[in-house]
Amino acid sequence: MSTVLFFLAASGVISGAVGVVVLRNPFYSVLALVAHLVSLAVLFLLLRAEFVAAVQVVVYAGAVMVLYVFVVAYVGGESDSVGERLRGAGGTGSSGSSLRLGGAILAGALLVELLIALLGTGLEAIGGYGAPYSPGPQSFGTPAYIGKLLLTRFLLAFEMASFLLLIAAVGGVVLARRRGGLGEEDERDLLTPLDLMRPRETGTMAEGVGGRTP
């Protein structure tokens, strides 16, 4: 049962990754990445990492991908294919294909090296099924286990991660803000502090013409 589930999830993971790399439209790439992340969460569940799998689905496939979808919809996803078409019409397509061939060779070399490094380590435990596991409310990978680790042994890493998130949020706001101030003149005089301080019926033209009486 777990073997069948592993091969289903692994084929989902790999085909999602291929889809991200190959698809022309960035919107479809984002959707392929969502499928990849959900299949990866299944693999995490098979490895008894329940909390990480839940975080993967909720935070990654939920929140971060929504951000991606919004930005793709805002920027407009067609620029890549249009650029490639123009490049192909310009006659410089050969450099692009040679670049792709070089990238494929480099990535293949990286894959071979990674597989040698990961599978040829000589660790006997790699061929095994992992450490013994007994289910329970506090066992390996449950939220209670992860929470205890995060708040005792890895407290510094936890706090550093929260600072990193804060800095990234501030940086994102600063990078994507609108430049040049508010710009529009009529956005300014909706309500100013002076309006609150001055006595009534002293000042505005509307009051003088309309004869507002208190």
Partner: peptide
């Protein structure tokens, strides 16, 4: 390893 090298590609 396969996913990592696909991402690098």
């Amino acid at each position: 390893g396969i996913v990592f090298s696909l991402g690098a590609f």
